[in-house]
Amino acid sequence: MKNRPIYKLMDGKGRVLIPKELRTASGMDYGDIVRLELANGRVSVQKVDIIEIGDQSPEAVEAYVRAAFKTMPDNTRLSLISDLTALLQQKKEG
C-alpha cells in the first residue's frame, strides 16, 4: 500500500468508512475493538486486543462482549444466544 492520504466524507451520524486496504494493512477485521483518541486536535484509530482495565462504560463492555463472542466455538455461541433469548422472554413476560 502506498503511503498517500485518503479522504473520506463523514456521514450524518459521524461515521467514516475505513477503506479495506487500511483495515487489511492494520490487521483490523469485523468485530475488532478499536480505540479512538483525540490528541492535539487529531483523532487516531488503533486496533486493540483488550479494553483498558477498569473501563466499564457501556461501549467498552459491549466491545469486550462482542470480541469474546467472536472467539467462541459455534456451540458455545448458540448456547449463549439461547440463554439470552430466554432471559429476554422472561423480562418481556414479567
Rank of each mutant, 00 (worst) to 15 (best):
F69A: 05
V45P: 01
G54K: 14
D83E: 12
M10E: 14
I50S: 10
E93G: 02
Y30C: 04
K92C: 02
L84T: 00
A68T: 08
I81H: 00
D49P: 01
V45G: 03
A68H: 05
M72P: 00
L88K: 05
R35V: 04
Q89E: 10
A63D: 00
T76F: 04
I53D: 13
D32Q: 05
M28W: 07
I81G: 00
D74A: 11
K13V: 08
L9C: 06
L78V: 03
L80Y: 00
Y7K: 12
G94D: 03
P5V: 14
L87T: 01
V34N: 05
L38E: 07
A68I: 07
A86T: 06
I18E: 08
D49A: 11
I53A: 15
P73F: 02
G41M: 11
T71P: 01
E37L: 09
K47E: 08
R15G: 02
M1I: 13
Y7P: 00
A25C: 04
R66Y: 08
E93Y: 02
P73I: 04
K8N: 07
V16E: 07
G41A: 11
G94H: 05
V65T: 01
P73Q: 06
N3E: 14
K13G: 12
E59S: 14
M28F: 09
R35Q: 15
K20M: 09
D32V: 10
D49F: 11
L38V: 13
A63M: 05
G94Q: 05
D29Y: 12
G31E: 10
P58W: 08
T76Y: 06
I6H: 10
K2C: 07
A86I: 07
M1K: 15
T24V: 13
V65M: 09
D32P: 04
P5S: 11
L87Q: 09
Q90R: 13
D55E: 12
G94R: 08
I50M: 13
R15I: 07
M72Q: 06
I50D: 12
V48T: 12
I81S: 00
G94T: 01
V34L: 10
K70C: 04
P19E: 04
V43E: 08
L9Q: 13
L22I: 15
A60K: 03
L36D: 03
A68V: 12
V61P: 02
E37W: 03
D11F: 10
I51Q: 02
T24C: 05
L22Y: 14
Y7R: 13
A60M: 09
A67W: 02
I81R: 01
K47A: 15
T85S: 05
K47F: 11
R42M: 12
L9G: 01
L78Y: 03
Q46C: 11
D55N: 15
T71D: 06
I18R: 06
S79W: 02
Y7T: 12
T71N: 06
S79Y: 07
L36S: 02
K70D: 02
E37G: 06
M28D: 03
A60S: 15
E21S: 14
N75P: 01
A25H: 09
D29A: 14
E52A: 15
L80I: 03
M1R: 14
D83T: 03
R4Y: 10
A60H: 04
S82W: 00
I51D: 00
K91I: 04
T76S: 05
N75S: 06
T71E: 11
T24F: 08
M28Q: 03
L88N: 02
R77L: 01
D49C: 07
G54D: 12
V16C: 10
Y7E: 13
G94I: 02
I18D: 05
M1H: 12
G94E: 04
